[in-house]
Design a binder for these strands. Structure first.
Lengths: 192, 192
DNA sequence: TGCCTTACCTAACGTTAGTTAGCGATGAAG
DNA sequence: CTTCATCGCTAACTAACGTTAGGTAAGGCA
């Protein structure tokens, strides 16, 4: 039972944090969502930062594992990119609140967790860089500044969190496919 | 003299806010940067939020004016997009700290400024939507979900703030051009 | 000389933050 | 029936926040 309520608290915390920001989300406000007083929360969690840490590192793991799988299973660069983006969008859309914390609130981590987290982020970028590099070597992707392409791609797929609505007209897979098409082929009509 | 120091204070504030976040940046810390005590700041500024307001609305104006110009002067959709992105990157890279506040800290605005600001942001997006819509009607751009394309493009050009370094190897114009090429033509090699 | 403004100071206010201490009720286990 | 962990509570602490009040030294100007 304890573990269940703990998860409820964390979930609600993530929801509030996404809505108002980590610093603006107080323990008293969080407690109110459960008709409790703030100190009672500490029967379930160790501290406010514990929520932040668990979420940041938990999501980092999810993203990294999914990416490593792609790099292991698929060989073709284009296929790799398509699957990586599909996985990323899938994780992002099914963990909107947690992903927001992962993307934008990690700066509130205290040391040494902050440094550790930055390193994980770096590793994730590295994975994408590899994929693009693969596609380039295969002659399928243009010769491009790989760092540049990586960052641009990551920005596009992360921005999805800003406008995705679970009840919208596109489901995660459709978003991922459309995004991949856009990234691969751009906006311009192909010359005939 | 007073106006000069006021600007120095605001500039330093923006620098600190970009580094640590609006809420994490305190008046005492800001004052320390000038070897002053916190209350002395109030001889130069009215409040902490004044800095936020001035920056958010000031930057919004810059971006919107630049975009309106593009929509007035150029006719071709592709040219419009190229110039809009060039202007955007130019403003962004020459106001890194202020742009960060504009992009990520506006949520700390209090009402009614918050609503007003959101409306301005909306208008800026609208401008990009128009451009893409123009290119589509001309038959130069693919038939695409315009909202989707707009958001993806804006995310890519805004993400530049995350990795741009003034002493890096690409200057703003190069970044803008490369970004535009990427957005227009994508990552894949053109079929022969 | 006398005065007013500028720009700093110290002291302190009121609020809010995260958290701890310690107590009481409940309910399952031995 | 007793025991003991669970999970709430109130009270309160420390630290930090933005800001105000009120005072003082310096410099331009009548």
């Amino acid at each position: 039972m304890k573990v269940a309520k703990r998860q409820l608290i964390i979930d609600k915390a993530l929801e509030l944090i996404r809505k108002n920001g980590y610093r603006a989300t107080g323990m008293r406000e969080l407690a109110k969502a459960f008709s409790m007083e703030a100190p009672s929360l500490y029967n379930h969690i160790k501290s406010k930062e514990e929520i932040l840490q668990e979420t940041c590192f938990g999501m980092a793991n999810k993203f990294i594992i999914a990416l490593d799988e792609v790099n292991d299973i698929y060989f073709n660069g284009e296929e790799k990119l398509r699957m990586a983006i599909r996985n990323h969008i899938e994780i992002l859309t099914s963990n909107l609140n947690a992903t927001h914390v992962f993307l934008y609130e990690w700066q509130n981590l205290s040391e040494p967790h902050l440094s550790k987290f930055v390193e994980l982020r770096h590793r994730y970028q590295e994975g994408y860089r590899e994929i693009i590099s693969t596609g380039e070597k295969e002659g399928v992707f243009k010769e491009s500044d790989i760092k540049f392409a990586t960052l641009t791609i990551l920005s596009a797929i992360n921005w999805v969190i800003e406008w995705y609505r679970p009840d919208g007209k596109m489901n995660p897979k459709e978003i991922a496919d459309k995004l991949t098409d856009f990234i691969l082929s751009g906006l311009k009509k192909e010359k005939i």
